[in-house]
Simulated assay, not measured.
Amino acid sequence: MTSHVHMIIGSSGSKLEDIMRDMKRHTSTMLRSIIQNNPIESRKEWMLWMMERAGAKNSNNEKFQLWQQDNHPVILFNHKILHQKLDYIHNNPVETGFVEKPEDYLYSSARDYYDLPGLLDILLVDPLVV
């Protein structure tokens, strides 16, 4: 999505809040560098200004902020809820009008479920047995 990310993550070791903190730190630093070093990005100055402005408003940041401080976690306590959320994530780009079918959205794991190449390696969720 253009303004937010949906993820299903889990851990058998690290705390999820630590995973999210580290993911946000890494991706914001990488994206800021990519934006700064892109010679043809027409919105570069505006995006960097927005990130610096957001960072200045939040004392938890040193210089810039890309991600919101909070998350909206949902505990997926059974297989049915897991599949409900996975279906929601996969259908979000369809409902928004970006694509006609979930597997057409390049940035979605739905592609992996249709044996199409995805951008990241993922673990597929076992099918829901009804």
Rank of each mutant, 00 (worst) to 15 (best):
L128R: 07
V99W: 11
V94I: 13
N71Q: 13
M1V: 03
V94Y: 13
H6R: 05
M1G: 12
W67C: 06
H72D: 15
G55R: 01
G13H: 06
N78P: 01
L82C: 07
G10I: 13
Y105H: 00
W46K: 09
G10Y: 04
A56Q: 05
Q36K: 15
A110D: 00
P39C: 14
F98A: 10
F77H: 06
H4T: 14
Q65R: 02
D70R: 14
S42F: 12
W49L: 11
I34V: 11
E41P: 08
L123C: 11
Y114I: 06
T29F: 02
L66V: 12
P93Q: 10
M51A: 00
M7Q: 12
L86M: 08
Y105M: 02
D115E: 15
E41L: 14
V5A: 11
N38E: 12
M23G: 13
V74L: 10
E62K: 15
H90K: 04
E52L: 06
I40E: 12
I35N: 06
N71A: 11
L76P: 02
S59N: 08
E17C: 15
E62Q: 13
M7E: 10
L106P: 02
N71V: 14
L16R: 06
E52C: 10
R25P: 00
T27S: 10
N38Y: 04
L116H: 03
M20D: 04
Y88E: 07
H79A: 08
A54Q: 03
V5S: 11
N37R: 07
L86F: 07
R43T: 12
Q65S: 04
K15L: 12
N78H: 00
H79V: 02
L123P: 00
A54W: 13
A54I: 07
K85S: 05
I35T: 07
K80Q: 12
G55L: 03
M23W: 14
I8A: 04
R111F: 08
G118K: 05
E41I: 09
H90P: 02
V130A: 12
T2P: 07
L66N: 01
Y107K: 01
D87C: 05
V125C: 04
S33H: 15
E62A: 03
Q68F: 15
N38G: 01
F64R: 06
L106R: 06
R53A: 14
D112S: 12
N71Y: 14
L119E: 00
G10V: 09
L123S: 09
Y88F: 02
Y107D: 00
M50I: 10
K85E: 04
L82F: 01
P39A: 13
V94C: 07
R32E: 08
M47A: 14
T2W: 09
A54E: 05
L76Q: 01
Q36L: 15
T2I: 10
Y113R: 04
L119V: 03
I81H: 10
S12Y: 02
K44G: 13
L116P: 01
S28T: 03
P39D: 11
V125Q: 07
S59F: 13
V125P: 05
D126P: 01
V94L: 06
Y107P: 02
P39F: 08
H90W: 03
K57R: 12
Y105R: 00
I89L: 09
A54P: 09
V94A: 03
D87H: 00
K15Q: 09
